[in-house]
Design a protein around this nucleic acid. Structure first.
Lengths: 276, 276
DNA sequence: CAGCGTTCTTTCATTGGTTGGAATAGTATT
DNA sequence: AATACTATTCCAACCAATGAAAGAACGCTG
């Protein structure tokens, strides 16, 4: 009788050593691979950086491309798609404040001809929403869509000073991470600084890193009185003195706040006494 | 003998009448619910518009919120998040061209003080990437992030004229959908118009809908010579004549094209004869 | 303040969409 | 021609995803 060949009855196909995370998280982690330095990526690069096998990445990417979250270039690489940009433009804290603030940012820019920045806070960092720069302006560290630390930038200090108490305490307790070009503040001084920012509506920081600059920032409030954004101007150190810039920055920030419903007229039923 | 009670032995739990589409498609369809008119939505609104049960929507939304694609407001509603906006800002055809073009758009805007638009094509529509408008400018139909038809807008005609032959033919064969304020062009005239646009680098359209305006658009080319965007100016009908605007629009579009690598200097090895 | 409708959230048995190793095809480099 | 890498197709196993049901939490009304 023929001895049955010792062929493995269970083909190794389909053996899944370990299962991963939810599908959406994987898809989003693919999107997260893109960055300022990585704007166009191949399949294998995406798979590698997102930590998943190529076939899995390909399948997910195919869905994202079909929807328009990603687009495929002629050379086979993938980039972030216009459809995603379109949905993202509905982000109230992204394009939303930007749209309202832009005319006033432009006014400030026209008058000063220096960098004008608008930023919001996302968790423990500031995200740059808009930046106006003349072609011949000094170098500046951050780009639109990029992130900046809260503790060592003018907009960051404004956003931190305007954050809820709980978040501020958590941030203050964390060890300050050193950034090149700015000396990190000890906790006590930082507390005093934040208090000053709240009182004066102005934050000021000197940097030396990409170039020697002075930044002056001021908070933007919404209708509820929360700090939703920070507006700043960045000038070469030694040019216009900060105390000259401060009023212009504050006035611009107030103008934006007003358009967001802050300082709005009171509701009709309590508008005047004569109506009672 | 006791007749066994007709209790269903299979608890109705877990009965899944029909299975839906892939998870990612569902998640993306949730994002797609957001629009200009719907910037903040409740769970049930999202579930309803995306066509899925509330629990499913909630589970997906939870993931999206955890990543930052969505954010939850104090009142429980959801909005598009800054994190998504941040990734989207890496879109070459979205924020990419916008960033390069903005200074030149501003120049044109400063000189003319009229609406200046920048748009790219996404499938069968134009997507508005940037719009500069003075506060007192005439009303204009489209907002940044919004979509406009190809056949009845100046930027649309430019993008259509610059599209690949195959796409153009497919579009021309489709019946023209009437838009208010512009008379739709018969196919023959449209063909001639597109040809003219290609030859002259200018498209012109008169509208009457939101207000009486004239739009003049010109193509923006990339390094490969493809039309990647369209730049236009919108003025009140009867003000500056189109033939006066055309050179300024063309010049601005060429300036942007040049910065995208179009019309770049030839490669070093064939730069001059004197080197041979 | 009970009653009612709506929205939000948690639970859980079921199962079909998801998975990734292997094989194949395609492309660039040596 | 060989090597190395990337992209794509295939498919059986299986676990993450699913949604009815029930409960919790509001908001509104009489």
């Amino acid at each position: 009788m023929t001895v049955p060949l010792d062929t493995e009855p269970t083909p190794t196909r389909g053996k899944r050593p370990k299962q991963g995370e939810p599908v959406i998280d994987r898809a989003l982690s693919l999107l997260a691979v893109f960055s300022d330095r990585r704007r166009a990526l191949t399949l294998s690069e995406l798979a590698r950086h997102a930590g998943m096998p190529a076939p899995t990445a390909l399948r997910l990417i195919a869905r994202l491309v079909a929807w328009g979250a990603l687009e495929r270039l002629d050379d086979g690489r993938y980039v972030v798609g216009v459809r995603l940009w379109e949905v993202a433009s509905l982000s109230p804290r992204g394009h939303g404040v930007r749209e309202i603030a832009l005319p006033y940012l432009e006014d400030l820019f026209e008058v000063t001809r220096h960098h004008v920045l608008l930023a919001v806070r996302d968790n423990e960092e500031a995200v740059l929403i808009e930046r106006l720069s003349s072609k011949d302006a000094t170098e500046v560290a951050y780009r639109v869509g990029g992130r900046a630390p809260l503790r060592s930038t003018a907009v960051g200090l404004v956003l931190l000073a305007g954050a809820d108490q709980q978040f501020q305490e958590a941030t203050l307790r964390k060890p300050p991470e050193n950034e090149p070009g700015v000396e990190s503040m000890p906790e006590g001084q930082l507390r005093r600084t934040l208090s000053d920012v709240r009182r004066t509506g102005i934050a000021m920081i000197r940097r030396s890193h990409p170039s020697k600059t002075v930044s002056v920032a001021s908070p933007v409030f919404d209708a509820q009185g929360s700090v939703v954004a920070a507006l700043s101007i960045v000038v070469p150190d030694g040019s216009t003195p900060p105390n000259v810039l401060a009023p212009a920055v504050r006035a611009t920030a107030r103008a934006v706040s007003r358009n967001l419903g802050h300082l709005a007229e009171v509701s009709p039923d309590v508008r005047t006494h004569s109506e009672g």
